[in-house]
């Protein structure tokens, strides 16, 4: 795997991935913008530093599993995987197109390194619990990392999975919460009560770390700590939906919308300007 150790290199890669996201969504003409941009730093950290994985042996049995339970933010995963060497970057332009491996929501059948089929919420979290149990049965040392969203915590089955992981003391399971405070119909606090999330997870016998999901130092430290946890652990990553594109940031209207050509142009020019400032 291509490992990036310096914060500057990670920031540059995240900026590249954000540009990829804008280009692929504009080309697709539909899809989700805010979520993928918000999680670009976390995915960069995962694929370019903390996950044990090998794009040349994508199904090696000792790989860390990464489940994207909030499947709709898959453009960020696809872009990170392309940049990590899983497939050519130009294939990103097939997002959401007929016969593409890059389905509108992740499909293991179409592309096995995606690990699971997700899109309908509250399911990847359950699959992650099953994979963590399988690893325990086989006495394997890899980790199961599951990205889940705040809106996904409206689903009852999410809490069933959280309860199961607590019951089975799955210390090989790490959730990372895409806490961007938006969902389709508005800000999460106005749609469905979620808080106090930290206290809820603690009550379910999990460890909790809260971080700024745009600070690489915090992301890397949190995952390092998470790997040593004696219980299942969630890293609540506070992120800004639409991060890096001024007119998308914190706008729930951008949850499920792709930029048109002009909007994409503006977004890219902002991201390119931002890139020049990265130190």
């Amino acid at each position: 795997m291509k490992k990036l150790d310096s914060i500057k290199d990670l920031k540059l890669m995240a900026n590249t991935i954000r540009q990829d996201i804008i280009r692929m969504l504009a080309r697709a003409g539909s899809g989700h913008s805010a979520g993928p941009l918000g999680m670009a730093d976390v995915f960069t950290a995962l694929y370019f530093n903390v996950l044990k994985h090998d794009p040349k042996k994508p199904l090696a049995s000792n790989r860390d599993r990464l489940i994207l339970s909030n499947g709709h933010i898959c453009p960020v995963r696809y872009a990170a995987m392309a940049r990590a060497g899983y497939f050519p970057v130009k294939e990103l332009s097939t997002l959401r197109k007929y016969r593409s491996r890059l389905q509108g929501h992740p499909s293991r059948r179409n592309f096995p390194p995606l690990e699971a089929a997700t899109g309908s919420l509250g399911q990847g979290v359950c699959i992650a619990v099953g994979m963590a149990l399988a690893a325990k049965l086989d006495k394997k040392k890899h980790f199961i990392c599951c990205i889940t969203s705040d809106g996904e915590h409206d689903e009852g089955s999410t809490w069933e999975a959280v309860n199961a992981a607590g019951k089975y003391k799955l210390d090989n399971l790490i959730f990372i919460l895409d806490r961007n405070h938006i969902q389709i119909c508005g800000f999460t606090k106005n749609v469905w009560p979620l808080e106090p999330l930290k206290a809820k997870y603690k009550a379910f016998n999990w460890n909790v770390i809260v971080i700024n999901g745009h600070d690489f130092r915090q992301i890397l430290d949190a995952v390092k700590k998470a790997k040593k946890s004696k219980k299942p652990i969630i890293i609540i990553a506070n992120v800004i939906p639409g991060k890096g594109v001024s007119f998308m940031e914190n706008k729930y209207e951008w949850h499920g919308k792709a930029p048109d050509e002009k909007q994409a142009e503006q977004a890219l020019s902002e991201l390119i300007q931002e890139r020049a400032k990265i130190r």
Binding site: A116, V129, G130, L133
Partner: peptide, 16 residues
Amino acid sequence: AEANMIGMAAGLALDG
């Protein structure tokens, strides 16, 4: 909690 049970089974199956 049947829904989670199905997901757990899927995860177990996908890992052999």
